[in-house]
Design a protein around this nucleic acid. Structure first.
Ligand code: FES
Ligand code: FES
Lengths: 173, 173
DNA sequence: GATAACTCCTACTACAATAATCGGAGTTAG
DNA sequence: CTAACTCCGATTATTGTAGTAGGAGTTATC
């Protein structure tokens, strides 16, 4: 369920580029890496996916870099995550029943489809502009009043401990 | 973004047990494995998580097996997935800001938190009963009328192809 | 009390994905 | 012509995933 660093870095990279591209000049990966505290060499990889998804355009040569292919307000978080991670499908059979032999019997498929759709909905609700804006979110904030502690008992037992928590002080970036 | 087989099998296993535990007798993994076309030896692993999350109870010895720790209607899909995959957190910092050094600056955290919450919401909307019922879903079906094809252009380009599709005819189970 | 059918527990293994790093070729402004 | 970039293709270490294996302990049945 965890988002890969690939996905997180991609998102952060896009934010970094969005915030720095006021002056019209393209943003270099070196800048973005410094500002976002990201490994520059790795960003070079990630940018490939973002370019081929037509979210970024590259400019070669000195003073080169990347700029957004369209305005931040028109780039949805889902677009970025999809570019980074591949199709936003929780299981393949939701879209193509032929992926599963047992698709006719399987009770899970309908639920998977519903879940998948809802995930795509949230992901497309926010745009890069929401993230790049300095003052934090505006839209969607009203939905946060409930604070944390969602599912009642579900957060308690912590089953299948999974590799322990991150070392204290380490950065998820 | 794909659900691990671990998660999918766990869910299917639970469905299989739910559907077969009418007669009060516990359901053996051999039965469930046969019925669900799942590798029995692997289920033995998965069942550990489901037990320690107190979703299943085991009965040793001949004619032994597993039964639901509570009625299917009180077991949410999210409970099962959480037992199988660990805490339903898309990033660690949503619940504990100390996980990220940059949590104060990071624009993404709020969005992550929102997304995370929504995912938990869907997952807790459906119960094992919904899945075990023979006739497919009832609740939630009304939300399906829109059919597939959600995000407009987002499904088209298929960025970062990711290991090609499953071999035709293979089963995701 | 043997035996068959189970759970339960602890490895172990093969493979794939993730998170990088590296060296260098090509491009462009000054 | 050089500094600062993008662009391209490999290579690597580490982790996670999916699954197998062997056997000890438990319980109903004959
Ligand atoms: S998981 Fe694909 S049909 Fe059940
Ligand atoms: S991802 Fe944790 S604070 Fe940004």
């Amino acid at each position: 369920m965890k988002l890969s660093t690939r996905a997180r870095y991609s998102l952060r990279l896009m934010v970094e580029i969005a915030r720095r591209s006021d002056g019209g000049a393209p943003v270099s990966l070196a800048q973005a890496a410094r500002g976002g505290d990201l490994p520059r060499r790795y960003l070079e990889q990630l940018v490939i996916g973002l370019k081929s998804a037509d979210l970024l355009r590259g400019v070669s040569g000195k003073d080169g870099g990347y700029y957004l292919a369209r305005p931040a307000a028109e780039i949805r978080v889902g677009d970025i995550l999809e570019a980074a991670m591949g199709p936003l499908r929780i299981v393949d059979c939701v879209e193509d029943p032929r992926e599963c032999l047992r698709a006719d019997f399987c009770q899970c498929r309908q639920v998977y489809a519903l879940i998948n759709r809802r995930i795509r909905e949230v992901l497309n609700e926010f745009t890069l502009e929401d993230l790049a804006r300095k003052g934090g979110l505006q839209r969607g904030m009203e939905r946060l009043e409930g604070k944390a502690a969602v599912g009642k008992g579900s957060g308690g037992t912590a089953p299948r401990g999974r590799s322990g928590r991150t070392v204290q002080g380490e950065e998820t970036r």
